[in-house]
Design a protein around this nucleic acid. Sequence first.
DNA 1: ATATCTGCAAAGACTTTGCATGAGA
DNA 2: TCTCATGCAAAGTCTTTGCAGATAT
Lengths: 162, 162
Amino acid sequence: MPRGLRMRHLAMGPPWWHGRFHGAGFRITIPREAILEVLSKTQKHLSAEEIYLAVHRLHPAVGLTTVYRTLELLVHIGLVFKFDFGDSRARYELSSGPKGARHHHHLVCTACGRVIDYTDFIDEEVELLQQTEKGLAKKYNFKITNHLIQFYGLCDKCRSKE
Amino acid sequence: MPRGLRMRHLAMGPPWWHGRFHGAGFRITIPREAILEVLSKTQKHLSAEEIYLAVHRLHPAVGLTTVYRTLELLVHIGLVFKFDFGDSRARYELSSGPKGARHHHHLVCTACGRVIDYTDFIDEEVELLQQTEKGLAKKYNFKITNHLIQFYGLCDKCRSKE
DNA sequence: ATATCTGCAAAGACTTTGCATGAGA
DNA sequence: TCTCATGCAAAGTCTTTGCAGATAT
């Protein structure tokens, strides 16, 4: 693979996440870049296989195993969050963009599995969560790094079917 | 199987959850009673296999398949909540006791997998959540039935190892 | 009486591991 | 150059399904 693809990044400075890799002693490779690129260009909650298929279109040599291993790594270093929406396969999302944007939570329909991202009330939530985190961290001597909030119920379509 | 076991329940009136079964057209059977009994007597977050083993001690004839099917049913009718703590097996908890007690959330250590139940700050959380639920229900026309909150981080033991 | 439920065995789905080859720093 | 990363194939683990026999109401 020629360096062309990577030159595109270099032309606008190294991608913001390179530091995270080097800092932790990991290498920057084509599959890793491709997976991050796929994740950064979607708003969906992709499964490992969906990521594999998308990456595979750009770089057919990349295998599913590498996708799994890379996702595990990305979750480990905090670049990616792994979700379980109850459809028995893991879903992945970039934990934050270059600007730390896009913080949101999920609304999951227990009938059809649809997942809606919402950012409403996030400010109030975040405020309460930060207080809670502080209190919990102190009481249980826990170093809290993340949180998960999901609401479950019936979406409008499934509601009307009942 | 003689009716002795069930007489014990009848002697103190039918268990509180019988109505939930009959109302939904499901039958009350030994395996179902045994599974609910196991769940009601633990504070742990049991996996399907752990539940199976516990049930199996009381009723060796009950199989793992039935445990899975029963848990699915219990989750469906809202008696049990299914969790994912990241150890790639589902965990189950009674969603509430006879008195609706024990509402709590979880603190998950991402290093060792330990899960701590906490009830601190629950009141404030619940208040905020109810407002949020109301707002979300309206905006997205969702009928919200449940929520999930988990905090992730390092527990005290894993913290000191780093 | 009869629609449900159960247990066993087998299949299914997602994810992980072993190992030789290939590639980043 | 020398680890670290990858791909393929195979294995592993949890969970679901098919079906005949058993059971609750």
